[in-house]
Computed example of a mutant assay.
Amino acid sequence: MSEPATPFWREKPLAAMSDAEWESLCDGCGRCCLHKLREDDTGRLHHTEVACRLLDVGSARCTDYANRRRRVPDCIRLTPDMLDGLDWLPPTCAYRLLSEGRDLPPWHPLRSGDPDSVRRAGISVAGRCVSERQAGALEDHIARWPGQWPRRAGPRPLPNPKGNAR
């Protein structure tokens, strides 16, 4: 019997991944689609529970992913070389975890084989956020949970033994 193949995210640097591999790292939680506020004088970051107008707040899926950057000009397309400078990615984000040299957590769909494992682990924003179309002032919706690691998600993954995230 042959040994199972090493998953691509454990052996490839982020910059060497194909577009399909890169896209598959997104667990679909929707946390990066929540608005953030940054204090001008201190630079302090505040997460909110307010979702981009394209995010379906019930499913945490973008309603127009293919055209999102045209429809929402400040929507960011993540690339491997920009990860070092981003402090707003949630601690549960696969891109952030891998760039820190960590493994994917057990609830990530690439490991669990189940996209619903993200919701069960308390990672998804589905049913926990409000659309920017109904929210009003962002300052009224500051929330801690989008920037935290949920207890029921288990411990943060340990560093990847190969440490080849970049």
Rank of each mutant, 00 (worst) to 15 (best):
M1E: 13
S2P: 14
P4E: 11
A5C: 06
R10A: 12
R10M: 14
P13Y: 08
L14T: 01
M17F: 06
M17G: 09
S18V: 04
S18D: 07
D19M: 06
W22Y: 08
S24H: 01
C26M: 09
C26R: 01
D27L: 04
G28W: 04
C29H: 03
G30W: 01
G30P: 00
C33P: 01
L37N: 00
R38D: 05
E39S: 15
D40Q: 15
D40H: 14
T42R: 12
T42G: 13
G43V: 12
R44N: 11
R44D: 14
T48N: 04
E49G: 12
A51C: 05
C52M: 09
C52S: 07
R53Y: 12
R53E: 13
D56P: 06
G58W: 08
A60R: 02
R61K: 15
R61Y: 12
C62W: 04
C62Q: 01
C62T: 02
C62V: 10
D64H: 10
A66D: 13
A66Y: 07
A66I: 09
N67S: 14
R68A: 05
R70A: 15
R70P: 02
R71P: 03
R71F: 10
V72I: 14
P73A: 11
R77T: 14
R77W: 15
P80W: 06
L86R: 06
D87P: 00
D87W: 08
L89K: 02
L89G: 06
T92A: 03
T92F: 02
T92P: 04
A94R: 05
Y95V: 02
R96F: 10
L98Y: 03
S99Y: 07
E100R: 08
E100F: 03
R102V: 02
L104C: 02
W107D: 00
H108W: 02
L110P: 00
L110K: 00
S112T: 00
G113F: 01
D114T: 01
D114A: 02
D116H: 13
D116T: 13
S117C: 09
V118W: 00
V118P: 00
R119D: 14
A121V: 04
A121D: 01
A121W: 00
G122T: 05
I123E: 00
S124D: 10
A126V: 10
R128M: 11
C129M: 09
C129A: 15
S131D: 08
E132Q: 12
E132S: 14
E132W: 08
Q134M: 15
A135G: 01
G136Y: 02
A137L: 15
I142S: 00
A143V: 02
R144L: 15
G147H: 08
W149R: 08
R151Y: 13
P155Q: 13
R156W: 06
P157I: 05
P159Y: 05
P159V: 11
P161H: 00
P161N: 06
G163H: 10
N164M: 13
N164K: 13
